[in-house]
Write a protein that binds this DNA or RNA. Structure first.
Length: 631
DNA sequence: GCAAGGTC
């Protein structure tokens, strides 16, 4: 059996889509070494498409370097990791080797980004090992649509090794620094009497640890915050149009009291300024992963990790587009009108969609384009009943959000009237603010943040208003709250920590390691996470500062552009982190003593709670993960 | 047993 070409995609869903776009009704589905494959006719030749599942190969240190007790972690900076097959990826290796013997041409139809390019080189390495004669071509498409796929297959490219090398360099550097610092922290804590549950360890990572630092930093800001008392004089006025409240703020209680007395004595005020301005509110820009996660946390009360896994499911069943994207600009090839037309009878929004379509629209436009994937949009119209039945209530919330967000991006601006009134009572000025939704626009479909109407009466300048009531409220300035997950995601994005697809993982890792917990959407450090972050900050701040990851990313990017070789960049980063390592080791006793205190507080506390029988859901789940890690 | 990055 022989194929004109074998097509390898990054995942099964894409392999299946390619087969149906190119093969139409001729597609035959079967399995190659247990991996789903699709055989079809295209341009007169028999083709086969097959999907892998992300990376197939990974880096690890050679066996003899994986004995934590007997290898000085410092040695890892001078040890080259080797490529190994990932656990669970053997079926793909076998399938690729089988297919390598059944064709002379392989089309690498992996995602259009550096990771996809790296996977392309993994595929080539595996297939070449059994058939060195194979010819490889690269299909580069940024959306899994018929037109994009056809275009990519007509303009096949050569694989780009620079792109792949960027990903491989990152893998090597991250493993080296992750493994060396994790081991030194874990081993030295144990030597200093630190006790932790079996199978657990003190991890360090170039993404997870700066994330922890951001969370701890906010806790310190809260503690350093100086609370101050202040006094608000609130006066209720009656105008010809109705009542409203205006207020003035005082730091000094006596001054507030004398102002109150004078207001009561005078009994009447004069409107000195009345502004009622209509302001246009623009709908959100097209949806990317991080924004979806952050809005789902705020509006739907879903954890980012859960949101992404639901979005993946909706994607794999064809309800929404690829959910891992940075892009907030619709590509010109995307048929927005066609997508919107699917929703003219959808939920309570259909009538408005029909109106928008009739009137014509210009979509909003953000600033980011990852040149690989379009923003997230719905690909199929579905009812609440259908989504809930197939995937559950939470999936409906996510799907509904994606649809409403998409519809909002093609909707009209809303108009909100911002209202400001200033009243003078004698010499004292009191202010009042209100607002009113004048034109709903996109809020007709985007129901999540509709501004609450709190209108003021339409008073006019010079109007006299009568004092109905006046009182003083004593208040205290409040420290900033703990970081919310939504803020944390925004900070990670700002500093370039992690990718859209992984940001939620870094939060989750910290939770699993008992470095912080998420309670009521807020990230609260544990004593362990706090001491770890602060001890590292005191000794080697570069190990925790959030700017460092962005700089690493910038250096790695020079590999992708061909400005620098992977060896140069990897060696430079190794020596940089080796210097950090040596500085840490100089004070490792100090650091580990601090950490041991944190360990005691976290794990003794857990033990006591467990004995008391109050095993929380989150904890029992993580404990299982720890066990799984143990061999 | 380490990381971060793919995907499920």
């Amino acid at each position: 059996m022989s194929y004109k070409a074998v097509i390898v995609a990054e995942k099964n869903s894409v392999a299946r889509a390619i087969a149906s776009f190119l093969g139409g009704s001729s597609v035959r589905r079967f399995r190659v070494e247990r991996v789903p494959a699709y055989e079809f006719l295209w341009e007169g030749g028999k083709h086969l498409s097959i999907g892998v599942s992300g990376h197939i190969l990974d880096f690890d240190f050679p066996e003899e370097y994986n004995k934590w007790e007997s290898v000085d972690p410092r040695v890892l900076f001078f040890t080259n990791p080797v490529l190994v097959t990932r656990e669970g990826a053997y079926i793909y290796v076998r399938a690729l080797k089988t297919l390598a013997r059944q064709t002379s041409t392989v089309i690498l139809a992996l995602d259009a980004d550096v990771e996809g390019e790296a996977i392309a080189f993994e595929v080539m390495r595996i297939m070449k090992s059994v058939n060195p004669e194979l010819e490889f071509r690269r299909a580069w498409f940024s959306a899994v649509t018929k037109s994009d796929i056809l275009e990519a297959f007509r303009k096949l490219r050569e694989p780009n090794e620079n792109l792949a090398n960027k990903a491989f360099a990152r893998m090597v550097v991250d493993l080296t620094i992750g493994a060396s610092f994790t081991r030194i922290l874990t081993l030295s804590a144990r030597r200093n009497g630190g006790v932790m549950p079996r199978g657990s360890f003190l991890s360090y990572g170039p993404c997870q640890t700066p994330v922890l630092y951001l969370v701890v930093k906010r806790e310190l800001e809260r503690e350093q915050f100086k609370k101050k008392k202040y006094y608000v004089l609130r006066v209720r006025f009656r105008s010809q149009e109705g009542v409203f409240t205006a207020s003035a703020t005082f730091e000094d209680q006596e001054k507030a009291k004398s102002a109150l007395d004078s207001v009561k004595r005078t009994g009447v005020g004069v409107v000195v300024s009345a502004e009622f301005n209509a302001v246009e509110v623009e709908p959100p820009v097209p949806l990317n992963t991080v924004y979806l996660e952050s809005r789902a946390s705020l509006f739907l009360n879903l954890r980012p990790k859960e949101t992404l896994s639901i979005a993946e499911k909706l994607y794999s069943f064809g309800y929404i587009s690829y959910p891992r994207t940075e892009t907030t600009i619709y590509p010109p090839t995307l048929n927005l009108r066609g997508i919107a037309s699917m929703f003219t009878r959808w939920e309570d929004a259909g009538w408005y969609v029909a109106k928008v379509l009739a009137k014509g629209f210009t979509p909003t436009r953000g600033r980011e384009d990852d040149k690989a994937h379009p923003p997230i949009y719905p690909t199929r119209s579905a009812s609440r009943e259908e989504i809930t039945r197939r995937f559950g209530e939470k999936a409906w919330k996510v799907y509904e959000y994606v649809v409403r967000h998409f519809l909002a991006t093609i909707s009209e601006n809303a108009v909100v009237e911002r209202q400001r009134v200033v009243v003078k009572v004698g010499e004292l000025s009191l202010q009042s603010e209100g607002r009113k939704l004048v034109y709903a626009g996109f809020y007709n479909v985007y129901k999540y943040s509709v501004p609450k109407d709190e209108p003021l009466p339409y008073v006019v300048e010079g109007e006299e208003v009568e004092v109905e009531d006046a009182k003083i409220e004593a208040r205290t300035t409040q420290p900033p709250p703990y970081l919310s997950e939504s803020e944390l995601l925004a900070l990670m994005k700002k500093y370039g920590i992690g990718t859209d697809a992984t940001m939620q993982e870094h939060i989750h890792t910290n939770i699993e390691r008992r470095y912080f917990v998420v309670k009521n959407k807020r990230c609260i450090p544990t004593p362990l996470g706090r001491t770890l972050a602060l001890a590292l900050y005191e000794t080697v701040p570069e190990l925790v500062l959030p700017e460092v990851r962005g700089k690493m990313e910038a250096s790695l990017s020079k590999i992708a552009t061909g400005e620098r070789t992977p060896e140069e960049v990897v060696n430079e980063m190794r020596s940089e982190f080796l210097e950090y390592y040596d500085r840490l080791v100089e004070r490792i006793d100090y650091v580990s003593k601090k950490i041991v205190e944190g360990l005691k507080m976290v794990f003794q506390d857990e033990k006591q709670q467990a004995r008391a029988g109050s095993v929380g859901e989150e904890r029992s789940r993580s404990t299982r993960t720890h066990r799984k890690g143990k061999k």
